[in-house]
Design a protein around this nucleic acid. Structure first.
Lengths: 288, 288
DNA sequence: TCCCAGCGGTTCATTTATTGAACCGGTTCT
DNA sequence: AGAACCGGTTCAATAAATGAACCGCTGGGA
């Protein structure tokens, strides 16, 4: 898309933090890039970069502009997707930012089901912690976020919410436990619970991968934690799964959402609706 | 703004209904214009014009695109206005589509008051009947609409609403009356009332200008109608003004609104707030 | 019926705008 | 003080958009 070229260049400069570096990235001369930036600033009426001795940085005006650019590009994609739709081809691309718990069972099944109906739609699944997922949404680099216990809710429009009680994944009933790192919702809830009660959390292993933790308990006598949606309905060989009491650890919530007020491309909107329907079914009868 | 050039051309072609005519309008060759349109369609991925033997017309994809273009341009203006604001200069441009009743007293006073505070802001006042005002909003060619008894309310977000009982402007109490044409809210309400009751409307003069009608009753014994906001608080020489009974004619509503969901530029948003405040005061104590 | 005006689309020489290489003045880190 | 970067500027080289002429087509009027 030709008329967005300048915007792409601006983004490149923003990322690189310097015109010369950005020029390398996009394979043009620094001089050409510099002139394009200046010309844009002329037309726009205001400078959008602070010129520092070691490079450039977006000024507040630039921040406003970059937000506009992003929403614009994403809206153009939406229009294209709508046009594709009325042209008969159900095409499109859905970008999802989600917690790890969705990776092993839920999302693969959901995406496969959707693609079975609409083979022209492509997907992009990004693993993001709760904060990063929301950042992804607000920069329009993801359409839909699926996160457990999100941190802030500004600009996050909840499309669906289901309760998820943390489950213990254990090989036996003994103490040693494996915990996710602090940025995860599961850890957040367990931390809260431990602060309230007398029991202390003393993880023998901290990990960022729930997959790793689930496998770890097969090797050492230990317990790990996960939310139901990240666990198979049929318990695996040698693994027992049991919900924590809601008196000990409060029930958490898995939220699906988008940027507040944004109109999603058709493919993404449809997929979000499918997700919401499936999630609701789980609340009614948790037997997936 | 250079990167919007193609969009301007697309709009020109849409308006002209033919590439050759549009080329004349924008002072380039038909060949050049044709190529730019085709190139854009290539990049966009879909044709946006139907090629007819006597010209071109937007196809549904094009309709979708033009909507996107308009919202995009208006959003860029909003960003510029915000930037101007944080640069310290309160600049901007406010475009208003309104009924005639607002012209003689209300809007001049309001705009003057606003410009007294913010001399950098310019205004554009367009007289539109109820339908055209809403069309103006949805094509982003006006920021704010002020209309009496709007027709449809889709995409119209009401920012303020005050009741306005139709007033009789008379030189004496006799029958002959002067009426606005059908597209006006005043006529609409009077029509409704006459259908419900037994009295017939038989205007001796139909006019599109309320100003004309107000002056006309000075020359011939006749009555005219207007809503309070279009009338001076101090009655003019020789003119008596008296409200119609709400039993005879239902009370109408003057609505101020914008396109649903749109973020207005700062200047427009501020002006809309000022209007809303002033309108509310009128409901409390109608003595302007 | 035929014909021609008007349409969109294409081709190729020309004009315009964009680019790249070299260079300038400045600041920072060594 | 000098080397290393930085953004900004200049001017010739390159790439892109443009205009004039032409093609094939359709619909309305003679």
């Amino acid at each position: 898309m030709r008329h967005l070229q300048t915007f792409r260049l601006i983004e490149a400069v923003m990322r690189a933090g310097s015109i010369r570096k950005a020029a390398e990235d996009v394979n043009i001369t620094a001089s050409a890039l510099n002139r394009r930036i200046r010309r844009f600033e002329d037309e726009f009426g205001y400078e959008i970069f602070e010129r520092l001795p070691r490079g450039v940085r977006l000024n507040p005006a630039g921040e406003l502009l970059i937000q506009h650019i992003r929403s614009q590009v994403s809206d153009l994609v939406r229009v294209q997707s709508q046009v594709a739709d009325l042209a008969g081809v159900r095409r499109g691309h859905v970008s999802i930012a989600c917690s790890q718990a969705l990776l092993p069972y839920f999302l693969p099944a959901q995406i496969a089901a959707y693609r079975h109906e609409h083979p022209g739609v492509t997907f992009e699944v990004k693993v993001r912690d709760r904060e990063a997922a929301e950042r992804d949404l607000s920069t329009f680099s993801s359409d839909i976020a699926l996160v457990f216990e999100p941190v802030v809710l500004v600009d996050f429009e909840v499309l669906s919410s289901i309760p998820q009680q943390i489950q213990v994944v254990m090989d036996c009933l003994d103490c040693p436990h494996v915990l996710p790192t602090a940025e995860y919702g599961v850890r957040h809830l367990l931390d809260q619970a431990s602060r309230r009660g007398t029991r202390r959390l003393s993880p023998i292993v901290e990990a960022e991968s729930f997959d790793f933790m689930r496998h770890y308990v097969l090797h050492e006598n230990a317990v790990a934690f996960q939310i139901p949606i990240g666990l198979d309905a049929a318990p695996q060989h040698g693994l027992a799964i049991r919900p924590l009491s809601t008196r000990d650890v409060p029930v958490g919530h898995l939220l699906m959402g988008q940027v507040r007020g944004r109109t999603l491309p058709i493919a993404s909107a449809l997929f979000a609706r499918q997700l919401a329907q499936d999630l609701e079914k789980r609340v009614a009868g948790p037997a997936a």
